[in-house]
């Protein structure tokens, strides 16, 4: 697998810029897609968002500061785009932005034809939609992407302690959901 530093070096050269971006897509597009998909649930929404995210990356990669990790920078862009999208979706459905639940996405979960999980996996996703958005975000990055708290902290701009508490609360709520829906 090509290193991030090599991708950035190639991107800095106008002659190899396209090649560098192809390498970046190859390396990160699936990770970013799944991160987005778990947050917005619907495949078509995720598809639109991922394209917009990578166009934004292409436009701004020249300004990327190498003191940060490339993949955390990508995750940050993706996360911000998802939060903006979800807020707009809430407004379209006349849901208050103060309502922290993601229950409005439950229909997308059951309607989607691109779901191949077991009943237990479906129940976990349903449980996740009862969580506040921030907890769901942290849980996804910790549980599915296996990111370290330090990395998540860099992405969402929250302290490691707050992230740990958030993850702990999310797991407890999910466990309670399972118990209640057995």
């Amino acid at each position: 697998m090509i290193e991030d530093a090599q991708i950035l070096e190639k991107f800095a050269d106008a002659r190899t810029r396209d090649e560098a971006f192809s390498l970046l897509l190859k390396k990160y597009q699936q990770k970013i897609y799944w991160h987005v998909r778990r947050l917005v649930i619907d495949h078509d929404d995720a598809d639109d968002l991922v394209q917009d995210i990578f166009v934004k990356v292409w436009k701004n990669l020249g300004n990327f500061r190498e003191d940060a990790q490339l993949y955390t920078w990508l995750y940050r862009i993706a996360t911000n785009e998802c939060i903006t999208f979800l807020n707009k979706k809430k407004q379209r459905q006349n849901i208050s932005l103060d309502d922290e639940s993601s229950a409005y996405l439950a229909d997308s979960l059951t309607d989607t034809s691109y779901f191949n999980g077991t009943q237990a996996q479906l129940k976990l996703q349903q449980a996740l939609l009862t969580l506040p958005e921030k907890q769901r975000l942290v849980f996804n990055m910790k549980y599915f992407d296996d990111l370290k708290y330090e990395e998540i902290s860099e992405i969402v701009g929250t302290s490691v302690g707050a992230l740990k508490a958030s993850y702990h609360l999310a797991v407890k709520k999910i466990a309670q959901f399972f118990e209640a829906n057995d």
């Binding site: 394209q51 292409w58 989607t112 779901f115 999980g117 599915f144």
Partner: peptide, 24 residues
């Protein structure tokens, strides 16, 4: 439960890469 339950259409990521490059 750590398994990703979501799927994508066949050849989706290849197509997506091509489409993103086109847009760029």
């Amino acid at each position: 439960l750590r398994v990703n339950p979501y799927t994508v259409p066949a050849g989706y990521f290849e197509e997506m890469q091509r489409y993103i490059l086109q847009r760029c």
